[in-house]
C-alpha cells in the first residue's frame, strides 16, 4: 500500500504544541507591547500587539489544518501543509496591506515583532519539546506530549 493512502490517527501533537505556544505568547504579550512602546511609542505598542496576534493566529491555523487533514490521509496532509503555507502567507500579507496606511501602525515595529516573536516562541517551545523527547521521564505531563500515536490505513 502506498504510504500516501495511510492516515495518522490518534492524538494531534501539533494542537498541543500550538496551544502551548499561544498560551506563552499571551503571557508575554504585555511585555512585548511595553518594549515596543518604549522603542517606538504608542503606535509601536499597538503594532507589536497586532504582530503578535498575527503570529499566534498563524500557529493556530497551521495546527488546525494539519490536525484536520492527518486523520483523513497523509496525502491530504501534505497538500494541506503546502497550500496552508501559501494561505497563511497570503493572510499575513493581506492583514499587513490592510493596515499599512492606518495611523496607529508602525511598520518597522510590526515587522520586527513578527520575526522576533515567531522565532522566540518557537525556540522556547523547542527547548521544552527537545527536553521532553530526550528525557521522557522528566516530561511534565506525559499525556500532553505523547511520544507515539498510531498511523493506520483508513
Amino acid at each position: 500500500m502506498s504510504p500516501l493512502a495511510m492516515a495518522s490517527v490518534g492524538q494531534a501533537p501539533e494542537v498541543t504544541v500550538s496551544r502551548d505556544i499561544i498560551r506563552r505568547g499571551l503571557i508575554i504579550a504585555p511585555l512585548i507591547m511595553i518594549i515596543a512602546g518604549v522603542i517606538w511609542g504608542l503606535t509601536g505598542a499597538w503594532s507589536a500587539g497586532l504582530g503578535l496576534a498575527l503570529v499566534l493566529m498563524n500557529f493556530g491555523l497551521a495546527a488546525a489544518l494539519i490536525s484536520w487533514a492527518a486523520p483523513i490521509s497523509l496525502a491530504l496532509m501534505m497538500g494541506v501543509t503546502l497550500f496552508g503555507f501559501l494561505l497563511r502567507l497570503g493572510l499575513i500579507s493581506l492583514a499587513v496591506f490592510l493596515v499599512r496606511d492606518v495611523s496607529w501602525v508602525s511598520l518597522p515595529a510590526l515587522g520586527i515583532t513578527i520575526i522576533v516573536t515567531h522565532l522566540g516562541l518557537l525556540f522556547w517551545e523547542m527547548r521544552f519539546i527537545a527536553a521532553s523527547l530526550a528525557f521522557p521521564g522528566l516530561r511534565p505531563n506525559a499525556q500532553e506530549y505523547p511520544s507515539s500515536s498510531a498511523a493506520e490505513t483508513p
Binding site: E14, I66, E125, S148, A150
Partner: peptide, 18 residues
Amino acid sequence: AMARQPEAAGMVRTTMFL
C-alpha cells in the same frame, strides 16, 4: 517516516510541525 514507523507518528508530527 510515518509510513515506515507508524508507532512513532506522534513524535514525527511534533518534529514536523516545529
